[in-house]
């Protein structure tokens, strides 16, 4: 379950690269993720149209050479909206993962290191947070603090915390009985130091895989919150709100719903493939089965 320091092989980097190139889901996932990320980055410098300038006369236009994906009910270019929306989705999901990791991993590692009452209390509290359906608690948080991208980030970040805490704790517990940690303890190192020097490096792979999964879930959650009007506020475009606005116009202009929907599906699919691929690559036991 870990990158063992005693992994055999003379040049582990090259070996990893060779395996990576042979892993189809990793490659496809990587390509999709890079494409979406590239699109989001590009939107900072260039979009086909300026979406803050509404040209209502061009509303609900279908697909054409001037508007590749058509225009929405206020005459905005949908491709430009999706590009900028990608920025919003990715930013929310990444920051939420960072929040989840930043709080969850130290908590989980601490619980594993200390055991006993600390472990009990932390993990039961964790269960409590975990027991709430994630989207419901996100709705609760935005209902209290008001809608907006920042509150959506906090809400999604909070429901990431128990996930990372569990993964970190489970991973850490499997490392603690290993010989090298026992050796480090025998050498008189503190638990905190051992956690930093030995435990965390050995659960990085696990966390990375979980990170991509939570990233995909974050994008879904953001879309869900925006759909309910609790995410990024207009005029900032977001995929979820595009779907909401498309809902009543589905028969008149189906492209309004199709493209943001596709954007969400493709992104989440890409991230899941990437996560699967990463898990295969980083898990030595699975590797041996190939």
């Amino acid at each position: 379950m870990s990158l063992d320091p005693a992994l055999p092989g003379a040049a582990p980097e090259r070996r990893f690269l060779r395996l990576a190139l042979a892993n189809r889901s990793f490659l496809i996932g990587c390509a999709i993720t890079l494409m979406i990320a590239g699109m989001a980055l590009l939107s900072f410098f260039w979009t086909p149209y300026d979406i803050t300038n509404l040209t209502v006369a061009d509303r609900l236009k279908g697909l054409s050479s001037s508007h590749l994906l058509g225009t929405d009910h206020l005459g905005r270019d949908i491709l430009s909206m999706i590009m900028i929306g990608a920025r919003n989705s990715i930013a929310v999901a990444i920051v939420a993962v960072v929040i989840g990791m930043g709080i969850g991993v130290p908590l989980g590692a601490w619980a594993a290191a200390r055991g006993g009452l600390v472990d009990e209390v932390l993990m039961r509290f964790n269960d409590l947070v975990f027991a709430f359906p994630a989207l419901l608690s996100a709705i609760m948080i935005t209902a209290i603090f008001g809608p907006g991208a920042l509150n959506a980030i906090i809400a999604i970040g909070i429901f990431n915390v128990p996930v990372f805490a569990r993964v970190a704790r489970a991973g850490a517990l499997s490392i603690w009985p290993r010989e090298f940690t026992l050796a480090a303890r025998a050498a008189g190192k503190s638990k905190a130091l051992i956690t930093i020097e030995h435990i965390l490096p050995n659960i990085t792979a696990l966390l990375l895989v979980q990170g991509t999964i939570q990233f995909a879930l974050g994008i879904l959650a953001e879309a869900g919150l925006s759909y309910l009007g609790l995410g990024a506020q207009p005029p900032m475009p977001s995929w979820g709100r595009m779907l909401f606005e498309a809902q009543t116009r589905m028969i008149v202009a189906p492209h309004l719903a199709i493209f943001p929907g596709l954007a969400i599906v493709v992104t989440v699919l890409g991230l899941n493939l990437l996560g699967d691929g990463l898990r295969d690559l980083l898990d030595p036991r699975l590797r041996r089965q190939r």
């Binding site: 803050t52 300038n53 509404l54 209502v56 206020l74 809608p147 009007g229 506020q233 207009p234 005029p235």
Partner: peptide, 19 residues
Amino acid sequence: GEVVASQLRQVGINLEIIP
């Protein structure tokens, strides 16, 4: 409101939309 906010933005009045 979105249309109005866009038109006012053209002349430099930036509106924060609060539903």
